[in-house]
Deep mutational scan, measured.
Amino acid sequence: MIIKINGKYYKIKKIEKNPNGKYTITTENGKKYEFKNVKIFSEEELK
């Protein structure tokens, strides 16, 4: 799965839903981001 952050695309390693309704997304390079609204892309959609 792929996520778009600030115009760049990252591969997703893990998605966790937090009790506060936000999502914590861990990218393949180990960085964590927290979002309220998340749009996930499949690799097929990006081709």
Score class of each variant (00 low, 15 high):
residue 38 V to C: 14
residue 25 I to R: 00
residue 46 L to W: 07
residue 13 K to Q: 12
residue 20 N to K: 05
residue 42 S to N: 12
residue 17 K to P: 04
residue 19 P to A: 12
residue 45 E to G: 09
residue 47 K to Q: 13
residue 46 L to M: 12
residue 44 E to M: 07
residue 16 E to M: 06
residue 28 E to W: 11
residue 12 I to L: 03
residue 30 G to M: 01
residue 13 K to L: 14
residue 28 E to T: 14
residue 5 I to K: 02
residue 32 K to D: 05
residue 11 K to S: 07
residue 28 E to N: 09
residue 29 N to A: 08
residue 11 K to V: 09
residue 14 K to A: 13
residue 2 I to T: 08
residue 18 N to S: 12
residue 18 N to C: 12
residue 4 K to D: 04
residue 42 S to W: 15
residue 25 I to L: 05
residue 25 I to F: 04
residue 23 Y to F: 14
residue 29 N to Y: 08
residue 42 S to I: 12
residue 19 P to E: 13
residue 12 I to K: 00
residue 23 Y to A: 02
residue 37 N to P: 03
residue 13 K to I: 14
residue 40 I to F: 11
residue 14 K to Q: 11
residue 1 M to H: 07
residue 23 Y to H: 03
residue 39 K to A: 09
residue 14 K to T: 14
residue 33 Y to R: 02
residue 39 K to I: 13
residue 12 I to A: 03
residue 27 T to Q: 01
residue 18 N to E: 09
residue 5 I to W: 06
residue 21 G to P: 00
residue 12 I to E: 00
residue 28 E to H: 12
residue 15 I to T: 01
residue 19 P to V: 11
residue 42 S to L: 14
residue 40 I to C: 14
residue 23 Y to M: 08
residue 18 N to P: 02
residue 2 I to P: 01
residue 31 K to E: 15
residue 27 T to W: 04
residue 27 T to C: 12
residue 16 E to H: 04
residue 24 T to A: 06
residue 45 E to W: 04
residue 43 E to V: 03
residue 19 P to D: 11
residue 16 E to F: 07
residue 20 N to T: 06
residue 31 K to M: 12
residue 46 L to R: 07
residue 2 I to E: 04
residue 18 N to K: 11
residue 11 K to L: 07
residue 27 T to I: 13
residue 14 K to N: 11
residue 19 P to G: 11
residue 30 G to Y: 01
residue 22 K to M: 14
residue 37 N to S: 13
residue 37 N to T: 14
residue 36 K to M: 13
residue 43 E to L: 02
residue 29 N to H: 08
residue 31 K to T: 11
residue 20 N to W: 04
residue 35 F to E: 03
residue 13 K to W: 09
residue 18 N to L: 12
residue 40 I to G: 09
residue 20 N to F: 04
residue 10 Y to K: 03
residue 3 I to M: 07
residue 10 Y to G: 01
residue 27 T to S: 03
residue 36 K to Y: 14
residue 14 K to C: 11
residue 38 V to N: 04
residue 12 I to T: 02
residue 17 K to F: 09
residue 42 S to E: 07
residue 45 E to A: 10
residue 45 E to I: 10
residue 2 I to N: 05
residue 13 K to H: 13
residue 33 Y to F: 12
residue 26 T to W: 15
residue 12 I to Y: 01
residue 32 K to F: 06
residue 8 K to D: 05
residue 18 N to T: 09
residue 31 K to P: 03
residue 24 T to W: 08
residue 13 K to S: 12
residue 36 K to G: 13
residue 40 I to R: 04
residue 18 N to V: 03
residue 14 K to S: 14
residue 3 I to S: 01
residue 16 E to Q: 08
residue 23 Y to I: 14
residue 23 Y to Q: 02
residue 21 G to K: 02
residue 17 K to D: 02
residue 17 K to S: 05
residue 6 N to V: 03
residue 26 T to L: 07
residue 22 K to I: 15
residue 40 I to M: 09
residue 9 Y to I: 08
residue 34 E to F: 10
residue 35 F to P: 02
residue 35 F to T: 10
residue 38 V to Q: 05
residue 1 M to E: 04
residue 40 I to Q: 07
residue 30 G to R: 01
residue 4 K to Q: 13
residue 30 G to D: 07
residue 20 N to D: 12
residue 3 I to F: 03
residue 14 K to G: 09
residue 6 N to I: 03
residue 3 I to A: 08
residue 32 K to H: 07
residue 9 Y to A: 04
residue 5 I to A: 06
residue 5 I to N: 01
residue 17 K to T: 04
residue 29 N to L: 06
residue 41 F to K: 06
residue 44 E to T: 08
residue 37 N to M: 07
residue 11 K to I: 09
residue 3 I to P: 00
residue 31 K to I: 10
residue 32 K to G: 02
residue 40 I to T: 06
residue 7 G to D: 08
residue 12 I to M: 02
residue 10 Y to P: 00
residue 36 K to D: 15
residue 9 Y to Q: 04
residue 7 G to I: 02
residue 22 K to S: 15
residue 44 E to C: 12
residue 31 K to R: 10
residue 20 N to P: 04
residue 28 E to R: 07
residue 5 I to F: 05
residue 42 S to K: 08
residue 7 G to K: 04
residue 6 N to H: 11
residue 38 V to R: 03
residue 18 N to H: 13
residue 27 T to H: 02
